[in-house]
Write a protein that binds this DNA or RNA. Structure first.
Lengths: 190, 190
DNA sequence: CCTATTTCTTAAGCTATATTAAGAAATAAG
DNA sequence: CTTATTTCTTAATATAGCTTAAGAAATAGG
């Protein structure tokens, strides 16, 4: 299973056999049943998680008790509370499993230590973070410039797998509308 | 002037005298008068820019001809079309100057070469990108969960300098509302 | 200084999306 | 299987924020 992570890293920068062994020692495999938390609002994020199977999400709960999804992490995605993980301060993100999942966890300590031992991995994470920022920028601009229907269509194009595995409620939350309104959009033809 | 960049880098990871010289050779100073473009939609982003004086912004123009601001970059901020800069593909962001400005520009080629020569700088940019992603996540969640008035108040708290130097129009665009509606919000008391 | 341009304000009417509610359908969990 | 829980749908009503328009104020640039 851990080979999924190795393949992912190798897709960005090739590791030697020794380096692969080091990586394998740094991460820990963990089962996360549906609805179980990987990180709770108010706590300092200890880990970043790489999803081997299943799907996690990060989200906040607002003053009215409504949830707002920041990120979905299906197979082969990393997920963390970036702010809390990097600054080692509490923030208000929650991370939990939407499906029974299996993940690898990496602590910030380990990550920082590994950056000194294997600069190639600092590069790997730099590139992942650059890509994540580019995607996030794209999402921000979509939110600023497009009506809900178009944002939904783009979501379907971008994440066709998620459309079939996740409740519509979660997708509505991600694109920033109520589930009732998404239901209405979907019932319109074209 | 270029020392502003050196100080900024030193605030994150200390450079040796030699390294400082190398950095100085890689960037180029450039004046950017108000309204002049640093990057145009449809082109491949050659440069990332570090603002020494003035203020730049990145934005898109939507189908209706309306502008939507992704980022402001006052003094000591980096700005680029991250997607285009990283992938070396065209995208639809524009970057121009809101005030007469003075910037340092760094090409992607130079940046990648410098990462191999001075790993410390790969670290510097990794950290900047992590912080930018954390901020972007925050903005996304604010947009999903807060009404315009609160988003405006948070903007005022976060960027007090910009409130006084930039046209309200630009700020309205950043927080995702029309200038007319921002004007209305501002006229309400409390 | 003077003029052109850009920005800001106000207000009336409009629309995309939210809220509430309640039943139907699907799914989870004993 | 059966029941409880969660999710989805529909529809009526409400509202935050948009559009349009037009004048006032501020600013840029000759």
């Amino acid at each position: 299973m851990i080979d999924k992570l190795i393949s992912h890293i190798n897709g960005i920068c090739l590791l030697t056999g020794d380096e692969i062994e080091i990586v394998k020692e740094l991460v820990r495999e963990k089962k996360v049943p549906r609805k179980q938390f990987v990180h709770r609002a108010g706590e300092v994020a200890q880990y970043s998680a790489f999803v081997l199977e299943g799907c996690l999400r990060s989200y906040i709960v607002d003053q009215n008790g409504l949830e707002h999804v920041l990120q979905f992490a299906p197979e082969n995605w990393w997920i963390s509370d970036m702010y809390s993980f990097v600054k080692q301060k509490p923030s208000d993100l929650n991370i939990d499993a939407l499906l029974d999942s299996n993940v690898l966890i990496l602590s910030r300590d380990c990550q920082l230590r590994i950056f000194d031992r294997i600069p190639k991995l600092e590069r790997y994470f730099r590139i992942l973070t650059e890509n994540a920022l580019a995607s996030s920028n794209h999402r921000t601009l979509d939110y600023l410039s497009l009506p809900a229907k178009v944002r939904y269509q783009k979501f379907c194009d971008l994440y066709p797998t998620l459309i079939n595995t996740l409740p519509q409620k979660q997708i509505a939350s991600y694109i920033g509308i109520t589930p009732e309104f998404l239901s209405k959009l979907r019932s319109e033809r074209s």
